[in-house]
């Protein structure tokens, strides 16, 4: 069972990371997209995604560490929720 963790505020990523397994995915949306500009994240082999619409809205698209982060749009966001067995929105 692999889960997609949806993170919508920057401080929530560090709170959620201890609970996220290697096979899970992490998707940053809303204000959390800023984390993708911080340089490397101490992730444990999870696949990392960031929502490009929310990056563009904040003028951050060109500041993302592209070697670690996969940029996805809304159609890809929907596809990710099917690719993973379930989604967990960290609130």
């Amino acid at each position: 069972m692999k889960s997609l963790y949806i993170i919508n505020q920057p401080q929530k990523l560090n709170q959620a990371l201890p609970f996220i397994s290697e096979q899970d995915g992490i998707l940053l949306i809303e204000d959390a997209v800023v984390v993708a500009t911080y340089g490397s994240v101490q992730a444990n082999h999870q696949t990392l995604y960031v929502l490009v619409e929310d990056l563009i809205a904040r003028g951050l698209k060109d500041k993302v560490g592209v070697e670690q982060w996969n940029l996805v749009d809304y159609p890809q966001f929907v596809e990710l929720t099917l690719q993973y067995d379930k989604s967990v929105s960290w609130l």
Binding site: N8, S87, L91
Partner: peptide, 8 residues
């Protein structure tokens, strides 16, 4: 539903 997605 096949998927439930939460927006909070």
């Amino acid at each position: 539903s096949d998927r439930l997605i939460t927006f909070g």
